[in-house]
């Protein structure tokens, strides 16, 4: 059986659809680490973590910040069901900086009733957003 030449990438978050395009390669932040997908990948169902998702179309790469959700991989397509997803261009850097600072403060001076896990997730989300936004700025 001939391998498919491209992947149909679909990224949807709970309130909108972000990407629906033909791509050559995708790297996905799984819960247990990043993994790359090329056309012809074996069917896979994965839980997503917090991270930087990128996909390549020819020479162009695009970055997105992703937090939680699921990925379904088929030989000729990838479907991402993300809880939170933002493209690099639309990330609000100032807000992410603020969130990072707040999360850091909370972790440094823990209150009695603090949810450490929540603070950690918030910090991770903020860091990923900043990282993705920085990548987009380098390119442009």
């Amino acid at each position: 059986m001939a391998l498919p030449q491209y992947l149909q990438l679909q990224i949807v978050s709970a309130d909108r659809s972000l990407v629906n395009e033909r791509v050559d390669e995708v790297e996905i932040p799984g819960a247990d680490g990043y993994f790359g997908v090329l056309p012809g990948h074996t069917p896979l169902l994965a839980v997503l973590g917090v991270g930087d998702l990128w996909y390549r179309q020819g020479q162009d790469t695009h970055h997105l910040a992703i937090a939680f959700g699921f990925a379904e991989v088929q030989p000729d397509g990838v479907t991402i069901l993300a809880q939170v997803a933002e493209t690099a261009e639309e990330i609000d850097v100032a807000r992410a900086e603020g969130a990072k600072k707040r999360a850091e403060e909370r972790m440094v001076t823990p209150a009695a009733d603090m949810d450490f896990e929540r603070a950690r997730v918030a910090l991770m989300k903020a860091l990923i957003r900043l990282q993705v936004a920085a990548r987009a700025r380098i390119r442009s």
């Binding site: 059986m1 709970a14 799984g30 819960a31 247990d32 993994f35 074996t42 069917p43 896979l44 169902l45 994965a46 839980v47 699921f70 088929q74 030989p75």
Partner: peptide, 28 residues
């Protein structure tokens, strides 16, 4: 369907994924 499409690889595990996917599905 061809036999190589009948089953998925699961990461981390099928159980773990279902534990997250099914409640999420109901919520959606």
């Amino acid at each position: 369907a061809p036999p190589n499409q009948t089953d998925y690889l699961y990461e981390p595990s099928a159980q773990e994924i279902f534990n997250q996917l099914l409640p999420r599905y109901i919520e959606v």
